[in-house]
Amino acid sequence: MKSDILIAGVGGQGIMLASKILSNAALKQRLNVKKAETHGMAQRGGSVVTHVRLSDSEIHSPLIPKGGVDVLIAFEPLEALRYLDYASKETFIVVNSTPIEIDNYPGMDDILEELEERNTLVVDALELARNAGNALTQNTVLLGASLNHLPLKREVMEETIRETVKRAVDENLKAFQLGVRA
């Protein structure tokens, strides 16, 4: 068993926390884990990507080879397109429909059309996070929405969220649950 997960988005969206939850949950399930992150300059509103590889056998490269991603979790629609070459036809894509605009941002219809040719679940994570009581819980919404395609158990994920998240624990758990149902 192996599960290669790519999380893409914009610096400041809580990508590091999401990848930390994934890898801590995997450790609880006694899986091997490698997690490669972007720190430093890219965090200042730049494009950010994290590779998380889970497996019950040895993992070599921390970076996932292009085309090898099993689950692409995109915190932002344009950033989903930016890393599309890491996906294959089989890749399950979860994408947040809320854009973070920049100059020359492509039309949202065009972005979604391209993504929907693939195995894509579009989630309004902002709306669900607000329903959970905190707009900053979009990251846990998206983890919930990916759950069915991850080798991680729901209760283990919930336990890990409780242990890993420092603020708004109840809101994060609710956000995760809303994500699972999305």
Binding site: R44, P65, K66, E79, R82, L84, S88, E114
Partner: peptide, 28 residues
């Protein structure tokens, strides 16, 4: 891994990126 795969004579995943041109998102 992709550069290394190519250098080893392997195939880089024949995957398709986005069909449109994407504006870069620089740190600010």
């Amino acid at each position: 891994p992709d550069i290394v795969s190519l250098a080893l004579g392997g195939e880089v995943g024949k995957t398709r990126g986005a069909s449109m041109e994407l504006p870069p998102r620089h740190p600010v």
